[in-house]
Each structure stands twice: as C-alpha cells, then as structure tokens.
Design a protein around this nucleic acid. Structure first.
Lengths: 221, 221
DNA sequence: AATAAAGTTTAGGTAAATCTAAATAAAAGG
DNA sequence: CCTTTTATTTAGATTTACCTAAACTTTATT
C-alpha cells in the first residue's frame, strides 16, 4: 500500500465519512468544512490524491474514493477504532475522551501492530461509540439495523451508536445517563422544534433537542 | 509546556542523548549524524530551539539543553520507553522490533494517557532494552551501576542494558541468546581487534567484535 | 604563526500543506 | 434564459523543515 502523509490520511478518512453519510460526490465545501480547512486547500489536495489514484475527481464535479482509496480509508478507520477500544477498555478513559487521542494514534501505520492490538483487545467488533471495526482484510461488519433517534418510529428503543464523537455531545449524554445499550422510552415528540421527551430506567423524564436526537442511533426492542 | 513539532521533539531527544553520552556541548555535526540530516539543517533548527529557550546555543559553540529543554526531553523519553514496554509486554513484540514503532507513538502528547499507560503497565522502571523510565515528574531512576562490556573488568557479568537499539544488533543478540539478565562468562579478550570470547550457560563459547561489546552494558555478579 | 583540514554557518532553493484574494463555473431564482 | 448567488478553482504567498553550494570559523599540522 502507498505511503500517505498524515494530511492525506485525514482527507481520505473525511471523504469516506461524507460518502457514508450519503453524499453522492463529496463537494469541495463539505470536505473543507469537515476538515476545518479552506476550499482552496481541498482543491490542491484533491489534485494530489487523484494523481495517486486514491480518488476520482473532475473539476467542479466533486470527489469519490476509488477502490484503493476505500481500502486506505478502512485501514485508517480500523486503527482509529481499535485505539479507541484500547483507551476505554485498558486505560479506562471514558468515551468522550478517546476520539482526539485516537486521531493521533491512528496514524502509526503498522499492520503487525494493528493486528496484534486487535488480538490483544479480543478482536472487538465495535468501538466505544458503537461503530463497527473493519477487520484486517478491510471488511467492515455492517452496522446493526439502526436509525437516528429523531426518525425512529417505535416507543421503546435501545441506543446502539452515537454518530457525533465530539466531547461536548458525549459529555451531555454521560450526564443524562445515555450510553451504548441504554434503553429509552419515547414519551412525546414536539413538532414545534422536533425535541423529544424521553425517559430511561427509573429516572425522571427529560427533553432533548433535535440536534442531539439526530446523533443518537437506536434500534427498536 | 510548549507545543513542539515532531521535528523539534526529535532534535530535543537527540541532543539529550548526545549530552548523556558525554558531549560537553553537542556539535552541529554530531547532531546531524544522529538525526541523519545535514549540518545546515541543524543550524536552522538550533536557532529556532534557542528562540524557544529549549537550548543554549552560540554560533560555533555547540548546543546544550536548558532546564526546560531537559524536561521536554525526559517527557518524550518517558513516552517512548513506556510504549516500548507496552509493545513487548502486551502486544508480544520482541525487543528488536519496538524502537521504530515507539519512535512514532512517543509523539502523541497526552500526560493523562501517558500516566494511565504507565499505571496499566504496572509503572515499569526499565524498558525492554534496560533503560530507566523517567517518572511523571521527569525524574529518571539512575541506571544501575553499569559498564560497557568492552571495558568491564570482571569475568562473570550480567547484561543489564543495550545501548544501541538498532534491529540489526538486537537480532544478533537474539541469535546468540543474549538478553537482559543473561549471565556472561568472559573467556578471553583479544588485544588484536579487541574482540571478546565469551560463554553463556551451557552453550558453546563464541566471539563478539568490539563493535558489539561496546553496546552491551553489564554489571559484575 | 601560517596554512591546511575539518566543522559550521549563510544564502538561496525546494516540497508539502496551508492561506487570501481574485477569477471562473455551476446552480438557483425570477 | 438571464442574472444573481453560491461553489469552486487559480494565482500567488506563507511556514516548516529540509537541501546544496559557497563562505566563513575553528582546530590541527607543519
């Protein structure tokens, strides 16, 4: 596999993420937003990654990963998620602390180390935020059937993942007692602002904004 | 503590190493050799590190770490050696494989993570090559009394550290059955090329070059 | 002490990854 | 369908960490 700089790896990862989120072709602007950089920088990098055959790219037509690009992305994501598992399971970090650290650890590229790490952790299938971990061949266990809470139909739900990994959201969820596996009862949906009133276990009901419910992935039980 | 780039961290680490090896003031050339770069680049970086008050430096007079520079160095070395322990103890790498990987892992700068890693490993005092690990306050357990094998006087010795961490040397030592704690009997010293004939346990005697014996640190038993 | 050799610095340049400002293309709205 | 808005690209700078070649110090040698 090609040797990618850290910057290149970050671009590949972000393109993969935006494709996953449903963008047919990833736009320069969207990518700049995701990477917190400027559109002009994205255009520059797009040319380079096209040169390396990691993306398909035509002026003004957006970006898509090639098969090789996808492979690279999955390898980076694998490393990222395994390190998150390590930080939570072994170093006892809580789930809101690990994303930033894993952003750095993921760039240490050694297949041998990655595979040993996986083994050491018991070959985990999902990371602390509920996301599936690609295997050594780059095959990603398809996520369990899941819907963002704001679109879920049932009243009884279980939290299976969180799509926003920002410290802010995860700390909020901690405070509310929401984690992976938590069972939620939807009490009321307010059309006005799309907020949702819900209840978990024996605690008093509380309300969350659409902003939050969009990022909680659930499945019915 | 200041925010250092990876390049800056590597310079600091190398300066520390050369100072330890006895250089009163570290020369531009020596540092260029250590970092596998060119003297002109060292001069450039020296100016920057002086600006940041991490080194003392005057044109043509060589380089020394300031107190702050020393602190930074010890923090990097702590991370490096803890990761080496992790790789050997937990991921079951052998001692010749871990130096390069730790060179990358060491640049992930998080005190919290470093301290948790240390705890997770049982607060080890020495790394897989026998070098002491600085504690969270940057205090380095002074190495046990040790001499390079080529200067040792006694006939019965124990290996306490290896100063060259190159894969080549460590693989050679593996092949010969020399590791930390190994007991060595010196059979003969040949003045001609300063090679040493030695014997370990029940194995047949063999000879090592001065190049090798210089890098094996021993203590008498 | 003069000169040669070795070590170090300066000057000027390059590549990667950014940026701003200006130019250009695509999309959206009347 | 023409114009305005939005998105994207180009051009030209900047920063970091390098480099080479030439100039300059220091040290060693006659």
């Amino acid at each position: 596999m090609m040797n990618l700089s850290i910057a290149e790896e970050n671009y590949i990862k972000s393109i993969y993420k935006l494709e996953e989120e449903g963008q047919e072709a990833v736009s320069t602007n969207a990518l700049a937003g995701e990477l917190d950089t400027k559109p002009a920088s994205v255009t520059d990098m797009a040319k380079k990654l096209k040169e390396k055959k990691l993306i398909e790219y035509e002026k003004y037509q957006g970006i898509n990963l090639t098969a090789e690009g996808k492979k690279a992305a999955l390898s980076i994501i694998r490393r990222h998620r395994l390190w998150e598992c390590f930080l939570v399971d072994k170093l006892l970090f809580s789930w809101e602390e690990v994303h930033e650290l894993a952003e750095e650890l993921e760039h240490v590229r050694s297949e041998k180390m990655t595979n040993r790490l996986s083994e050491f952790l018991g070959n985990p299938q999902i990371d602390p935020h509920g996301d599936p971990i690609p295997d050594a061949q780059g095959k990603m266990g398809k996520p369990r059937a899941q819907t963002p809470l704001h679109k879920a139909k049932s009243k009884r739900l279980e939290v299976v993942a969180v799509s926003d990994k920002s410290t802010a959201l995860l700390e909020f969820l901690n405070a509310k007692g929401i984690r992976l596996g938590t069972q939620i009862d939807v009490i009321e949906r307010y059309e006005f602002d799309n907020s949702i009133e819900l209840k978990i276990r024996n605690q008093p009901a509380f309300t969350i904004s659409e902003q939050v419910s969009k990022n909680i992935m659930v499945k019915p039980i």
